[in-house]
Amino acid sequence: MAIARGERGVRADLEALLSQVHPVFMLPPLAASWFGAAVAGEFTISVGVVHMGAIFFAVYTAHVKDGYVDFYGRGEDDDHPMTIRGCRAALVGATLAFAACTLALGVLVGAGAALVTLPTWVIGFLHAPQFDTNPVTTTLGYPTGIALAILGGFYVQTTAVTATILGFSLVFLVVLAGVKIIDDEQDYDYDRSIEKRTVSVALGPDRARTLAVSLMFAGLVGVLWGTVDGLFPPSAPAGALAFGSIALVARRARPDIATMLLIRGAYVFLAALFVAVWFRPLSGAGLPDITIFGRYTYLVTEICFGAVAFGLLYRAGALWRAARTIAVLYPVAYLWDWYTLEVGVFAITMRTGHNLFGIPIEEHLFMLVVPALVLGIHETLRAHHS
C-alpha cells in the first residue's frame, strides 16, 4: 500500500509520515506534559515518557486528520504528501499507538491516568471537520489540548489534582486561546469566503483582535493572582512579564507577524514558568521593604505613582480634561473616604500623621493620584487606538 503521493518506496513513505510532524505545533504539547511533571516535583521518567508518547500520537492524529480533510475533503490545500489510504493508515497507526500508551498509563498509574489522557485524542481526531468550523471549538481545541497535557503530566506522576496545576492549566488555556484567535486571523479572507466561522469571521478582525489581547492579558493577570495567593512560585510573574512584553509588540502587528511573535513568546512563557517551578529562584526572598521611609512611606508611593500618572496624561495631551474630571470626582471621594475612616472601616499606619479637613493629607493625594492614573491609562490606550 502506497503511503506517499508521487514517489514510491520505503523512504518516500517514511518522509510522508514524518511530514505530519509539525515541530512548531508538536513541541508545545510535549513540553507541556513535562511541565506538568515538573510542577509535581519528583517524577518517574518512564511514566513521563509514556504520557509524552500519548500526547505525541494525539497531536499527530490531529495533524493527519486535518491534512486529510483539508486536501481530500474540502479541497483547501494545494497539495498533500500522503495518499488517501496512507492518511487512513497513519490515523489507524497513531490511534493504536495512542491506545497503547493510554493503556500503559492505566496499568502503571491507574484508571484516572488513562481517563485524563483520553480527551487529548478525542480533541485531535475531531478537530477537523467537526471542531474547526465553530468559533468556540476552533479556538479552544489546541489550547485545551495543552491544558490537558499539563494536567495529565502532573496527574500521572501524583494521581492527584491540585489548585496549583489547575491554575497553570487555566492560565495556558486562556493565554493560548488569545494566540489562536490571532493565528486564525491569517486566514480571515479565505475562511469568510467558505463561511468557516472562526472568531475573526464571527466578530470581525478588529473586535477579534481586542478579544485576543484581552484573553492574553487575563491569563497573565491570572499568573499574578496565583503567585500572590501562594499557588505559583514567587518568580512566576517573570514569565508573565516576558510574554506580556512580546504580546505588547505583537498586538498591532500583521496577523502573520503577530502569530510568529506570540508562538515564540509562548515558548518563552513556558520555559520561564518551568524554571520558576523547578528551580524556584526567589523562594527564599522576601518582598522589598519600602517601610524604610517610615512615616513618609505612603506619601512616597503616592509621589511615585503620581509621577507616572502625570507622565501618561502629559503624553496623551489630557492634563486639562483629567483635571476637570478629578475635580468633579473629588467631593464624592472625600465624603466616602472621611466616612469610612470615621467609622473605622480601615486604618492607615505608615503616614505622616498630619490631617487636613478631618482626613490624613495622604488621602487627599490618594483621591487625586488614583483617578489620574486611571485616566492616564485610559487616554493613552484611546490615543493609541485612534
Rank of each mutant, 00 (worst) to 15 (best):
L27G: 01
G9A: 01
S386P: 12
R315P: 06
P360I: 07
V249D: 13
N355E: 15
I150V: 14
L18H: 02
F154I: 06
A322T: 01
L312V: 06
F125S: 11
P143L: 09
F154T: 02
M350Y: 10
S214N: 10
D189W: 05
A58V: 07
L365T: 10
F25P: 12
R5E: 13
T352W: 00
A90Y: 04
G294E: 00
P331F: 02
L148C: 06
M52I: 03
D77H: 02
V39P: 01
A90V: 12
F131W: 01
D13G: 06
E363H: 05
T301N: 09
L241G: 10
L270Y: 03
A250H: 11
G226N: 10
F154S: 03
A32G: 05
L105V: 02
I326N: 06
H63P: 11
L262I: 13
A372C: 10
F125N: 05
V64C: 10
P143C: 09
A327Y: 03
G376M: 07
A32C: 13
V275G: 01
A307D: 03
A236K: 06
S33D: 06
C87K: 06
T198M: 05
R5T: 12
L299F: 11
D66V: 04
H384K: 13
G358Q: 07
T198D: 02
T158N: 03
G358S: 09
A160I: 02
A90G: 08
T198K: 07
L148F: 03
E7Q: 11
V308S: 05
L220C: 14
L335R: 05
F71Y: 13
V249E: 13
G344Y: 01
L27R: 00
A16I: 06
R5K: 14
A40M: 04
P135I: 07
I246L: 10
A218H: 08
I181L: 11
S245D: 10
H63M: 15
S235K: 06
Y188V: 11
W225A: 15
F232R: 08
P360R: 01
L248Q: 13
Y68H: 13
A322D: 00
I246F: 02
T301A: 09
P143W: 02
A383W: 09
A240S: 14
A147T: 04
H384R: 15
H364D: 08
